[in-house]
Design a protein around this nucleic acid. Structure first.
Lengths: 230, 230
DNA sequence: ACCTGAACACCGTTCAAGT
DNA sequence: ACCTGAACACCGTTCAAGT
């Protein structure tokens, strides 16, 4: 028996790309806390300090890992169909990517104005323009969409972080939350209690799309047919 | 000269409330990174371990500090006016609170389903109900509003964290971002470049309200007048 | 130019020991 | 019951020293 892979292969020399790929693997396996310079060094069979030769710091690395996922995700989104359909497609693609790599949600939220966020802004911005929103309203409209997407991304990231920490699955997490909500004070939290049951078996993805459609509908009503207002 | 305050007064014994108040002071002064059990112990003139007698862990403490701010904020929101006006009032109150205490944004985003988030859900949920949204659509509508608010909160928190780290003020942060955007590839990032200038002197608060109104408008169009659809 | 890995300055959390 | 504070098991980052 010949001794293959005596340790994580070192066939290629260290590079930013290899570091980012290894970081993604660690993040996917261990969540946001799984990325550590020590774990990364071990996986790349190198010293912790060597990584700093190719990467400025942890935040830089996290953003680069996030950008890799976002760029791939956006590349697979449809480039035909109506503007609204394309926005839905992009938003759903991002939802699924963040669902699969929860750490992307917090990385995205933590790097405002950086490349991954800008890619999203660009793709959505073009469709908002194509939708006929006047130039003066485009910035606010795009921000509304992006902020909504980021908000959902952040919640998903937080939920999956909690699930990982407590070793819950999604169902028991929601169940625990619903139980807690239904034990709140009946007067002070009447609405929350009334929706506690819906929490258990709601469809995150469907609710996400519904919210997106609310914004799109608002844009259509306010911008696309200005003559019909009132 | 008599020697008053030989060290941070210890006139009252340690309590959860005193700990939370001290935590808020540290967070306001030093951002999310400013809260440390060692700093907290020093400020309370006690040992680090003593704090664990009143607080489960750091996440528990952060959520409690966040809840204190959110509860006070919501208590000052108007309880009259139209449902839409009340939603705007709540959303603006939260915006200003998070603007003043950026750490609240990340604390809120990091504690889904916990008390501070539930307070917001409850207040907005009641108004969505009053708005005439049918029961079946209330959950999705409330989530849309809350996710949007959380998204903006998260972005604000991240921006202020970056500003603090680099010792920038808000203006130079936006200026640096706008400069970076305008240096992006002209073809690949045409939309982003076209809005880079608006970034420099846009009004966060006004854009926030505009986005909120898009969602409210969508809700009105889709739910409040179902007979008029199409 | 690129890599090594010990060292530095921190963390949150625990726990035997005190009162 | 409540508090002490040293100790533990980690972090990100730096930097003299190597190749």
């Amino acid at each position: 028996m010949e001794k293959t892979r005596p340790s994580p292969r070192r066939d290629e020399s260290l590079s930013r790309e290899r570091i980012v790929d290894a970081a993604i693997a660690l993040l996917d396996a261990g969540g946001a806390d799984g990325l550590t310079f020590r774990a990364l060094a071990e996986r790349l069979a190198t010293g912790a300090g060597a990584i700093y030769y190719h990467v400025a710091n942890k935040s830089d690395l996290l953003t680069a890992a996030c950008d890799s996922v976002i760029a791939h995700t956006l590349a697979e989104c449809a480039v035909d169909g109506s503007p609204a359909a394309q926005i839905r497609d992009i938003a759903l693609g991002l939802f699924d990517a963040i669902d699969a790599h929860a750490w992307v949600g917090s990385a995205l939220a933590g790097a405002p104005g950086e490349l991954p966020g800008v890619r999203i802004l660009e793709r959505i911005g073009r469709q908002v323009d194509a939708l006929g929103v006047p130039h003066g309203g485009q910035w606010a409209a795009v921000c509304a969409l992006v902020n909504y997407i980021m908000g959902v991304a952040g919640q998903n990231a937080a939920n999956s972080q909690i699930a990982r920490t407590h070793a819950y699955d999604r169902a028991s997490l929601l169940d625990a939350m619903a139980t807690r909500w239904s034990q709140l004070d009946a007067q002070q939290f009447s609405f929350t209690r009334s929706v506690a049951d819906q929490l258990r078996d709601h469809d995150d993805r469907a609710d996400y799309l519904t919210g997106l459609d609310l914004i799109l509908q608002g844009m259509e009503t306010l911008y696309a047919h200005p003559g019909q207002k009132d």
